[in-house]
Amino acid sequence: MRILLTNDDGIHAPGLEVLERIASRLSDDIWICAPSEEQSGAGHSLTLTRPVRLRQHDARRFSVAGTPTDSVTMALKKIMPEPPDLILSGVNRGANLGDDVTYSGTVSAAFEGALAGIRSIALSQVYTKEGLGENVPFEAAEHWGEAVLRPLLDLPFAERTLVNVNFPPLAADAVKGIRVVRQGFHDYARGSVVESTDPRGFPYYWFGLHGIEHTPGHETDLEAIADGYVAVTPLQLDFTHAASLRSLAARYQ
């Protein structure tokens, strides 16, 4: 089985090293193509206004001066002699839960793989405030990664779908198991924008990554993680809201 690894945290990210170790338990035919620098929040963006540079680190390891989508595109069209059987994106440093998947470069790399008709899985390690910076513990992802992936290796994926996996911020032996759940939804109205002033007196802003509430009371990826489970969620690229088609069409008759 040929596996392509990518991410949005960059070619030197600790989570990519974790993903390599997980993938090595599944195959010895592993290729890597990831952004040369961190691209968190890049979403499904594609570089169109400047050249994309490709760097080869060894026989099967490459980096791209571009986005996660660029990385998958270059791997499939310029690097790999044959398409991979599986694309794994991650392990992301931080959660990709609920509607945050629309911002996620990690999930978007898997989206790109799904568009190419390749079984694709995104993996992310949730962390607590104590894991800020470079101190994110990947213990849950490393221990549970193979257990999550093996059942998916021979599972037929529906066309233009992928699987999104999130590991809870717990020690491996504290994880309660694996739940297959739907995507949750955040309350972005409660999000924050942090304002400060630079040394020259000009204001600048950081988008806050805290204080966003989520919808309680139903089984979603958000609740699964909060309850201590690995969250496994099937996602689709068809964003059409089918229930609105008829009422919207009636407006133009």
Rank of each mutant, 00 (worst) to 15 (best):
D70L: 08
A65G: 05
P151T: 09
L152T: 04
F167L: 03
S63V: 06
F111T: 01
I87A: 09
G90K: 09
I79F: 00
T69R: 12
Y103P: 00
T69V: 15
F157W: 01
P156L: 10
G133Q: 09
P68A: 04
D100Y: 15
G66I: 04
L115F: 00
L162H: 03
R160Q: 15
V148C: 09
P137T: 07
D100A: 13
T69E: 05
G94R: 04
I87H: 04
T102V: 13
P156A: 07
T67A: 12
Y127V: 00
S104L: 08
P81G: 10
P84E: 07
A110W: 01
L153S: 11
S63G: 14
F157D: 03
L153K: 08
G94D: 10
G131A: 04
L153W: 04
A122H: 03
N96E: 14
G66E: 02
F167I: 05
F62H: 11
K78I: 00
D99S: 07
I121H: 10
T102K: 08
P81D: 11
K77W: 02
A158S: 14
N164C: 15
V64S: 07
W144H: 07
T73Y: 02
L149H: 02
Y127D: 11
A75E: 06
A109H: 01
L152R: 06
A75D: 09
V163H: 03
A109G: 13
